[in-house]
């Protein structure tokens, strides 16, 4: 786990489709601030990555074992 997390965290590990993306989108809709999203499946990571590209949000992506951590920058 990174110690550099910023803002609220969405922990979507172990959740099935479409919950990881839904929780991420709900958190993004809450405001333009920073957000950390943790997922543990490649399918979820890809869907979050595509959504961030659609929403034009930048993120630092860290791979940690099977987990992917998105440190999403403020808008």
């Amino acid at each position: 786990m990174t110690s550099q997390t910023q803002g609220p965290t969405v922990d979507a590990r172990g959740l099935s489709c479409p919950q990881p993306l839904l929780l991420t989108m709900q958190a993004l809709a809450d405001g333009p601030g920073p957000l950390t999203v943790i997922v543990d499946s490649a399918a979820a990571a890809e869907s979050v990555e595509r959504a961030l590209s659609r929403e034009k949000r930048k993120a630092l992506v860290v791979q940690n074992g099977g987990e992917t951590i998105f440190n999403i920058s403020p808008k």
């Binding site: 489709c17 479409p18 993306l21 839904l22 989108m25 399918a43 869907s47 595509r50 959504a51 659609r54």
Partner: peptide
């Protein structure tokens, strides 16, 4: 590819994603 017929419908409704 994560091909999924149900996910296709949900993607459109929830996220307006046609992927």
């Amino acid at each position: 590819s994560r091909f999924c017929s149900v996910g296709a419908v949900q993607g459109l409704i929830l996220f307006r994603s046609g992927h």
